[in-house]
Design a protein around this nucleic acid. Structure first.
Lengths: 253, 253
DNA sequence: ACCTGAACACCGTTCAAGT
DNA sequence: ACCTGAACACCGTTCAAGT
């Protein structure tokens, strides 16, 4: 992070130009047409020239995710948390829909780049600012994760550490501290999970619980709608009658 | 459909053997290690021998999905619809978790095979048997789709028709009728959607609406839990107190 | 030191030559 | 008619030879 955007001349290659060209290529011809060789051809350079700016194809894909994360609107200020989250999730969806390869690529990423962590930190902050507990926020993030992205798992599991085998414990601790400074909201949510039961490695997330959490939210909601004889035909009318969302879903607290 | 399982001798190749070997290979070494050439090697045959049993790699992947769909438990009789659905979704999840490549492959399938349609028909039937309207069932399927599978889209869009450009309308109608006979529950859910607004081609599904439907169910649920000061730490106690699900989620109707 | 052509070890699939 | 080796048009990446 930091050594990008060093192209001097127009026509000169830069990491930014490589990533943008890769995004354009995948947008226009599909992910299966994105090869290092073809990308080089598109940029008018020899294949090996790309390896100056990305270590390999995996890093290219990581960078492409960074590019489109930058296309998600920043949070809108002044809205209640639910509307703010709703708006932002819909913005993320717009981006994912605009790049048909995005879900597939995101799903296969293992390391989270700085740009992705920043987005997740900001997203997490919307719940905390709304007064939700770190605990509920944690589960809410997992439940909505699949909707926003395509991944269902791990908020972060020993992030950025890479091959952690040889990293001494005090260095790991320092790294965690730096993480906490840079991504305070993620840290606030992760800290309790780390304390009870979780090691740093296992990250303290219970996949099965998170899955059932989201599943039960949906099933309970569906049952509610069934009891109320909800119908999608009436949902526009419901919206006109003052409901918040166009789906006409809304329980009276 | 119908011409599988024709292997005569032990050691003879059959579609079934090819598919099972592909599943095993992907399970053991990962999806990126699954190549036609390596699969052939694993089976002790020349690469081109596989093309007698699958048209190409895409069809191989289709078949692999069929294999694991067969691993999902059948519906449990005698349960209320919500418990029945819950149990079956968790069974599907178990299968998907057991085959780490499954989500990725399912997401890239475009044609749905008979086995997948049969599963979806049976799954759909669980809601209808519970008394849910075809309309609500339709949206519920979309909302849960991502949880069960990894796809969010289209329940079915002109299924099995293939290159439909040259198919005469009366043949298409006959095909639809046969579909309805074979998959009555899907048909019951799709019929209303087809009538209002939808052509056969466009399938009458509004992606944006389905997305917002699921999103709103989750957001409303999260808000409810926030109001009640729900915590995951208390959820085991809540379960002991008689709640249905281990997550402790349950609104009092 | 930097750049890059050739080479390596792979792909999925076609096709013509063998039986 | 069936089977299959060689070939085609690709991959991502290494590496040694060039400047």
């Amino acid at each position: 992070m930091g050594d990008q955007e060093t192209g001097r001349r127009r026509g000169q290659l830069s990491r930014q130009r490589v990533l943008q060209a890769a995004v354009d290529l995948a947008d226009r011809f599909g992910l299966e047409s994105l090869s290092m060789r073809r990308l080089a051809g598109e940029l008018g350079v020899v294949p090996m020239a790309l390896y100056k700016h990305v270590a390999n194809k995996e890093e290219l894909l990581d960078g492409m995710v960074d590019v489109i994360v930058g296309e998600i609107d920043p949070p809108q200020a002044g809205l209640p948390w639910k509307e703010a989250v709703r708006t932002r999730v819909l913005s993320a969806r717009r981006v994912v829909q605009a790049h048909l390869w995005a879900r597939r690529v995101i799903e296969t990423r293992s390391v989270k780049t700085g740009a992705v962590l920043e987005y997740m930190d900001s997203f997490t902050g919307m719940f905390l600012a709304g007064g939700l507990s770190p605990d509920l926020t944690h589960h809410a993030l997992h439940a909505l994760g699949g909707r926003m992205w395509g991944f269902t798992q791990e908020l972060f599991e020993d992030p950025q550490v890479g091959a952690s085998a040889a990293v001494p414990p005090e260095a790991q601790a320092a790294m965690l501290q730096q993480m906490a400074r840079r991504y305070p909201n993620i840290a606030a949510v992760a800290a309790p999970a780390l304390h009870d039961g979780g090691t740093v490695v296992a990250s303290g997330c219970d996949d099965q619980f998170e899955f059932e959490f989201a599943l039960d939210l949906l099933l309970e909601g569906i049952e509610q709608l069934h009891r109320r004889k909800w119908s999608s035909r009436r949902s526009n009318a419901a919206q006109a009658a003052g409901f918040v969302s166009p789906t006409g879903i809304g329980y009276d607290g």
